[in-house]
Design a protein around this nucleic acid. Structure first.
Lengths: 138, 138
DNA sequence: ATAGATGCAAACTATTTGCATCCTC
DNA sequence: GAGGATGCAAATAGTTTGCATCTAT
């Protein structure tokens, strides 16, 4: 797989004031083009040779997440998954398949669930909100 | 802290066909009485002497989760958290405080959020559904 | 009596840290 | 040129596995 210049990705990096490097472009491009959340191992495998160090990939993802370019999710597979942007998923407990949920807002998403459930038996879910509490909001 | 016989916990174990052992009663009691999600380290610290092996605690939590007695959540603190039953939380990114969300159903919970936000600035959230996809539903 | 629970030791996986060198701006 | 990014080596944290022994049913 060949990675040519990916303008939207480069713009995103610049907008976040991150230096544009080959490794970052490659990681961002793979995430952007993936239709499902990627674990680091899969992301690493997809990187073109010469691959950057695994440690670098971890650091890149950390910087992307701080900038909000990427979203980390816990799919209960024993390791983190990353998506370009911020989406939610249906995760099959048996085969580990993931199905992206449509809709930008949580409410909208929830209304869609009823239909989705026809083909997906929801047995559990995770819902956590992150942010700053009263004491930490300065 | 002394753990006397905890009937509700013992009943729950029996109902799940789990053998009633001292270690299980202790773990279940601590979780049941905790108002916030507990990480394994904190749970272990709270165990009365003589403490069971840490490995045993991991195995107990695994069996509890399989039986649905306990719910595991990823609060982005680098390790799992457990709650007796199934609740969701507001998690402060700065001080790691957690605030339980009231309401049994997701919809109900979401409507409550608007008010909660007055004192809690939500910057991100996680929402994942787990279960069985079409192919895995037999 | 027997299946399942526990303890101990060791392994494993995912992730992080330190430091020297390199590259983007 | 300077500050941030990367590579390499090593460490760490959380969790899991194997196996012998013990215990609740």
């Amino acid at each position: 797989m060949l990675y040519t210049v990916n303008m939207s990705v480069e713009k995103a990096l610049k907008a976040s004031k991150l230096k544009v490097t080959k490794a970052r472009i490659a990681v961002a491009t793979i995430l952007e083009q993936s239709s499902s959340p990627l674990k680091i191992e899969a992301l690493y495998d997809a990187l073109p040779d010469p691959k950057p160090d695994l440690v670098t990939v971890y650091r890149i993802l950390e910087s992307f997440e701080k900038s909000g370019l990427v979203h980390q999710s816990d799919l209960r597979h024993g390791h983190a998954h990353y998506t370009w942007g911020h989406t939610h998923h249906l995760v099959c407990t048996a085969c580990h398949s993931t199905f992206p949920l449509q809709g930008d807002e949580v409410e909208k998403t929830l209304k869609t669930i009823a239909k989705q459930q026809k083909d997906f038996t929801v047995t559990d879910h995770a819902l956590e909100f992150f942010g700053f509490c009263k004491n930490c909001t300065n």
